[in-house]
Computed example of a mutant assay.
Amino acid sequence: MVTFGLERRAVLSLGANLGDRVATIDAAVRALDTIDGIRVLQRSSAWESPSWHPDGEGLTPDYVNIAVLVGTTMEPIDLLDATQAVEDALGRVRNERWGPRTIDIDIVTIGGIEHAEDRLVLPHPRAHERQFVLQPWLEIEPHAELPGRGPIAELADYADGDAWRLE
């Protein structure tokens, strides 16, 4: 694994809509924090949002989502590999785009890095459109900005979809 040597802040968006959603997200956060090169700094409370599918909303169970702020010394692609290993360990199956999933971990941003290749685009190309990303992130970093898009508080005012804090 290649490292920068210097720690950068990254924002991860975690979601689950199968099984015990909250327990799976908690397990994912614990697993991330045990990986060399990743330090969990802060996490949001749990938020719920309707599932989305190209054939219509509500075809699969609602999602539970959180945002996690981590410090990482990893290269972006190494962080992606690490998050996908956590997903795999928690039973993630990748057989349908937009399908239901036990866990999904998206890298929203890493520092101010812009990165574009087949496997990873940074910042996440649709984060600015998603309440289930913006609301949990806003909770833990209210003055944050999404590189190339602006303050997340302003983005949340215009983003589509619903997200509500889970009781």
Results as ranks from 00 to 15, higher is better:
Leu90Ser: 03
His115Gln: 04
Gly112His: 15
Gly91Tyr: 11
Leu12Phe: 10
Arg119Pro: 11
Asp118Glu: 15
Glu7Ile: 08
Ser44Val: 10
Pro61Ser: 07
Leu14Val: 08
Glu114Gly: 11
Thr34Pro: 00
Ser44Leu: 06
Gly19Cys: 03
Arg43Tyr: 05
Met74Ser: 03
Ile107Cys: 04
Asn17Leu: 14
Gly58Tyr: 08
Ile38Met: 08
Gly111His: 01
Gly111Ala: 07
Leu41Thr: 10
Ile113Leu: 15
Leu79Phe: 06
Asp26Trp: 00
Asp36Glu: 15
Gln84Lys: 09
Thr109Pro: 01
Asp81Trp: 04
Ala85Ile: 02
Arg94Val: 02
Ala46Asn: 09
Asp26Cys: 00
Ile107Ala: 05
Thr60Ala: 15
Ser13Pro: 05
Val29Glu: 09
Gly99Phe: 12
His53Gly: 08
Ile110Lys: 06
Asp26Gly: 00
Arg97Val: 12
Glu57Ala: 14
Tyr63Met: 00
Arg43Leu: 05
Gly19Ile: 00
Asp88Ile: 05
Phe4Asp: 10
Leu120Cys: 03
Ala46Trp: 10
Asp106Gln: 04
Ser49Pro: 13
Gly91Gln: 11
Ser45Pro: 00
Thr73Ile: 10
Leu90Gln: 05
Asn65Val: 02
Leu120Tyr: 06
Leu18Asp: 07
Ala82Cys: 08
Val93Glu: 12
Val68Ser: 12
Thr83Met: 01
Ser49Lys: 10
Ile110Gln: 13
Asp36Cys: 08
Phe4Met: 09
Glu114Met: 12
Ile113Thr: 12
Leu18Thr: 04
Ser44Gly: 07
Asp33His: 01
Thr72Tyr: 11
Ile66Pro: 07
Gly58Val: 10
Thr73Gln: 13
Val108Cys: 09
Thr109Glu: 14
Ile105Asp: 02
Pro100Leu: 05
Ala27Ile: 02
Phe4Gly: 08
Ser13Thr: 09
Val2Lys: 14
Thr109Gly: 05
Ala46Met: 14
Leu90Tyr: 07
Asp55His: 12
Asp104Pro: 07
Gln42His: 11
Gln42Arg: 15
Thr83Ser: 01
Leu18Pro: 06
Leu90His: 05
Ser45Asp: 14
Asp78Asn: 15
Val11Trp: 11
Gly15Val: 05
Gln42Pro: 00
Glu75Gln: 15
Val40Met: 02
Leu80Met: 04
Arg119Glu: 15
Gly58Thr: 09
His53Arg: 09
Asp88Asn: 08
Val29Lys: 03
Thr102Val: 03
Val93Met: 06
Gly37Asp: 14
Leu69Gln: 10
Ala67Phe: 06
Asp20Asn: 14
Thr24Leu: 13
Ala31Pro: 08
Leu59Phe: 00
Gly19Tyr: 03
Ser13Phe: 04
Gly15Pro: 06
Ala67Trp: 07
Asn65Lys: 11
Gly99Trp: 13
Asp62Tyr: 00
